[in-house]
């Protein structure tokens, strides 16, 4: 009986759904599987919304995006990684937990093509998460963020934009800012110096679905 109750709790009671009613209220969440981040974001990234992850070079943005994608693929979801800068390292991504078989890697040659590819994937649906990795590109004036946001909302796909500076502007429902970081090197007398990892601070700069201003510190070890 306990399992039946759990199923009802998870899926809702039969007959409780009003036919023809438009679903309203807060969007469901895509868990990131990083406990502290999930706690800060009230369960994860909002599905059907645009989220943005900004920060300077070597602050750990890509690692955080990859961890979020790894969480989604680990849960059995399919994701897409739009990579106009051709920067994804499959071996490092696999070490960080990304299930490569569930990851569609698209490498457009230009930012325009990347936008079109994102639009196609959002419109097609079926992907839990689409990551648009433009971490080293300046903001593109011709990206129709409203169009992308609508497509994401229609297919309930979470769109995560990884960038140096904010791209999506007011269209982003959630903006995470990776601000401070400290590079850690192994040290000690007689020991070989190695890059150990880095520590970064992730702050919620904007949250239309909850209170902004939360922050966590993430330690990223070398993969």
């Amino acid at each position: 009986m306990a399992s039946a109750a759990a199923i009802l709790h998870r899926l809702g009671r039969p007959g409780a759904i009003r036919l023809g009613a438009t679903p309203t209220g807060t969007p469901t969440r895509l868990p990131t599987r990083l406990a502290s981040l999930d706690a800060m974001l009230d369960g994860g990234l909002p599905r059907g919304r645009v989220s943005e992850l900004t920060g300077a070079r070597s602050t750990g943005r890509t690692a955080l995006a990859c961890a979020i994608a790894a969480g989604a693929t680990g849960a059995g979801e399919a994701i897409a990684w739009i990579d106009p800068e051709d920067a994804l390292d499959p071996e490092a991504a696999a070490r960080s937990g990304l299930v490569l078989e569930r990851t569609l890697w698209v490498r457009p040659r230009t930012l325009d093509d990347a936008t079109r590819a994102t639009d196609l994937l959002l419109a097609a649906g079926g992907m839990a998460l689409v990551v648009l990795d433009v971490a080293e590109s300046p903001p593109h004036p011709h990206i129709h963020w409203t169009r992308l946001a609508r497509a994401a909302e229609r297919t309930r796909t979470a769109l995560l934009v990884v960038s140096k500076r904010p791209h999506a502007g007011a269209t982003a429902a959630l903006m995470l800012e990776v601000t401070a970081r400290r590079v850690r090197w192994s040290s000690g007398p007689g020991r070989l110096v190695l890059l150990d990892g880095l520590t970064c601070r992730v702050m919620v700069a904007r949250n239309r679905l909850g209170p902004p201003g939360g922050a966590i510190v993430l330690r990223q070890a070398c993969a």
């Binding site: 994804l88 071996e91 490092a92 937990g97």
Partner: peptide, 28 residues
């Protein structure tokens, strides 16, 4: 890196929670 045709496998049970590992952005 290499690419293979994308045919997502059937969903499998979720593994344990992952931690955050430092990534390398490859310059190609």
């Amino acid at each position: 890196a290499a690419l293979a045709p994308f045919v997502p496998p059937a969903p499998a049970p979720a593994p344990a929670a992952a931690d955050c590992r430092l990534m390398v952005r490859t310059v190609r």
